[in-house]
């Protein structure tokens, strides 16, 4: 289980970094779905299978909602290749987040009732890279992905200390709500240039 958890952390690192630097929205949505799979694996070590499944399904449905909405919007040919700029800078920023995460994992692990280094690393990576994402963009699809990534990180950490069914249901509703609001805003913004394909 420990090995599986570290594999999930590796998937989280690759997927959240890929979302940050991907130019193609299809690829970034696919990585978001992979991120939820990794989250599911990490959750299994603390939460019952049912609760972990609820979070996985909510995450995947959210990916489907934003993917289907985005696929119905026109591409912006002029925007191709424009976003994201400075991949190296983004990779460097991810590296900085990684260094911070490595530094704070022991203390966070201690605070969160010894949830496990893998859980703390995965959660903090998601939260950190999600926040990085939110700080770098004002595009609706990207903001939605950033929020979902940050919340996924929080959910992993929180599930280690709180197993309430109400919390799980409300967080699943919030995940879906963020995806629906993102989809709504994407549709509302169809008159302005959409995300680069």
């Amino acid at each position: 289980m420990v090995l599986l958890s570290w594999i999930a952390v590796a998937i989280i690192l690759i997927s959240s970094t890929s979302i940050l630097i991907a130019r193609n929205w299809r690829i970034s949505v696919a990585w978001l779905a992979a991120q939820y799979l990794a989250m599911f694996i990490l959750l299994l070590s603390h939460a019952p299978l049912g609760m972990a499944l609820v979070k996985l399904i909510a995450g995947w449905v959210s990916c489907a909602v934003i993917g289907m909405t985005r696929s119905g919007l026109p591409n912006n040919p002029a925007g191709q290749g424009i976003w994201p700029r400075a991949r190296l800078f983004r990779l460097f920023a991810v590296g900085a987040v990684g260094v911070i995460v490595v530094g704070v994992v022991p203390s966070v692990n201690h605070i969160m009732a010894d949830a496990g280094a893998a859980i703390a690393s995965g959660a903090l990576l998601l939260a950190g890279i999600g926040l990085l994402h939110l700080g770098m963009t004002s595009r609706i699809l990207r903001v939605t992905q950033g929020l979902l990534t940050t919340l996924a990180g929080f959910e992993i950490l929180y599930a280690a200390v709180e197993g309430s069914a109400l919390i799980t249901a409300a967080l699943a509703a919030i995940t879906l709500g963020i995806a629906l609001v993102g989809a709504y805003l994407m549709i509302a913004s169809r008159s302005i240039p959409a995300e680069a394909s």
């Binding site: 609706i140 903001v143 609001v181 805003l185 549709i187 509302a188």
Partner: peptide, 20 residues
């Protein structure tokens, strides 16, 4: 959010910041 932005109006940056 749907109260603040209608489907016929492109959302401003304020709504996104509010949400974030």
């Amino acid at each position: 959010v749907p109260m603040l932005v209608s489907l016929s109006q492109p959302p401003g940056k304020g709504v996104l910041r509010f949400l974030i």
